[in-house]
Simulated scan of single mutants.
Amino acid sequence: MLSQHSRYVPFCHDKQINFPAAMSPPSTAVVYDQQGPPDTVTRLTEIPPVEINENDVCIRMLAAPINPADINRIEGVYPIRPPVPAIGGWEGVGEVHSVGSAVKALTPGDWVIHSAYLPGTWQTYVVEDQSLWYKIDKSTPLEYAATVSVNPLSALRMLEDFVALNPGDTIVQNGATSIVGQCVIQLARVRGIHSVNIIRDKPGSDEVKEKLMKLGADKVFTESELEVKSIKSLLDDIPEPLLGLNCIGGNAATLVVKFLKQGGTMVTYGGMSKKPITISTTYFIFKEISLKGYWLQEKTLDKAAYRCSIDYLLALARAGRLKYEIEMVTFNDFHTALEKAMGKQGSGRKQVLKF
């Protein structure tokens, strides 16, 4: 039986439930009973209805992405993960199906996302307290509503929380083709900030460069193009970056630091290469470089700041000024989407489950 750490895992309680006033519909969910390879430990299963209390809202999930952190939680390598058995997914958008008798702010048909990160979005119906849901504009494209609260929000917060950036300033990042990287490029462009972007050397890099330039990138370099004595000469008339963003580690992180101006800051939010960051002592002593880390769940945004950020990002998405590549997949094809998200089938796009 699933543990009751969250109502997102609505399996039967041990105690007797006698004719509740309202019940959710039965739900179909992606469940894993143990940590391990996601493609072998996950299964689709039916979950019985659960009681809807007076302050609860029953949400019919509309769409939910498969994020790298979701995979890591199932594997058991993520710092925070729900106890097993558990239901996958930590992000998504849903439609209000029904509400408890005391709920006034939400009504059936409203679109909502989480106002907090809780496990269990990979299921067709979710029941939780009204305080955990945030109403959004229904004119928002579904795929962006489902994915706004992790990758785009991370990009925005990193641009705002570490260095005071002004129009005309410059940032540099590796992992520029990632969803966060694409968002950084577009958010920087909206604010008049230059972006210098580093991508891996692989076939089709010219097409990748062109795609990122269309999003608003000022400069895009492959790693091998930065094997020069003076990286500064590649900037032309663009100022040296104040802020660097690193999600790769290893040599890719070193390249970010090389671009930074005196007193610049590099923020690390990932380690895709699984290689350590090695920085020359020279950068600390003579350039006074600062190294910091970022983890979205560790940020202490209050509700007002969270909602302001989400509304801002979704407004940009509705206006076509924030976009990224997404592949919508029906919920019944979950395991196909999972294999693509794990890189076992070619796609390169973020997989979003459509319920």
Rank of each mutant, 00 (worst) to 15 (best):
S347M: 08
Q35A: 10
D161C: 14
V163L: 01
M266T: 01
H194M: 07
I238E: 04
L353D: 01
W295I: 13
W133K: 09
E95W: 02
A176Y: 00
I277C: 10
L44M: 08
A337K: 05
V220E: 07
V163E: 01
G263C: 02
G100V: 08
D129C: 15
Q34V: 02
S3N: 10
Y134H: 15
A176N: 11
N251Y: 13
S347L: 05
K202T: 14
V220H: 10
V127K: 03
V352W: 02
P26K: 13
A319H: 01
G348N: 05
D311H: 12
L159P: 09
G204W: 08
W295F: 12
Q297C: 14
N246C: 07
A155S: 08
S6L: 11
G204I: 00
T254R: 13
V93I: 05
M272N: 11
K354I: 10
P10R: 00
E51V: 15
P37Q: 09
S154I: 01
S309Q: 09
S139V: 13
L159Y: 04
Q297M: 13
V172G: 12
C308F: 00
Y144L: 04
E225P: 05
Q351C: 04
G320Y: 00
L159I: 11
W90Q: 06
G100C: 05
P37W: 04
V112F: 13
L291H: 02
D129Q: 07
A105G: 11
K15R: 13
I179S: 09
Q182V: 06
V196H: 08
F355P: 15
L212Y: 03
E51G: 07
W122N: 08
S280Y: 15
Q173V: 02
I113A: 15
K209E: 08
C183T: 13
H335I: 00
S98P: 00
G270E: 13
A217L: 12
F162S: 07
V329K: 13
G293Y: 00
K303N: 14
V180Q: 03
A317D: 04
A102G: 15
I326D: 12
G320P: 03
V257P: 02
N197H: 03
E298G: 11
V93E: 04
P68D: 15
G250F: 10
F259H: 06
S347Q: 06
F11N: 08
T42I: 03
D33F: 07
P38V: 08
T254E: 12
T121G: 04
V93H: 06
D237H: 04
G293L: 03
T336R: 11
I199C: 07
V126R: 05
M342F: 02
I285M: 15
E240F: 06
A319E: 03
S101Y: 10
G76M: 02
I47A: 04
S195Q: 10
K344D: 09
F11E: 15
P26G: 14
T268A: 05
N67I: 01
Q351H: 10
V127D: 12
E227G: 08
T254G: 02
V57P: 04
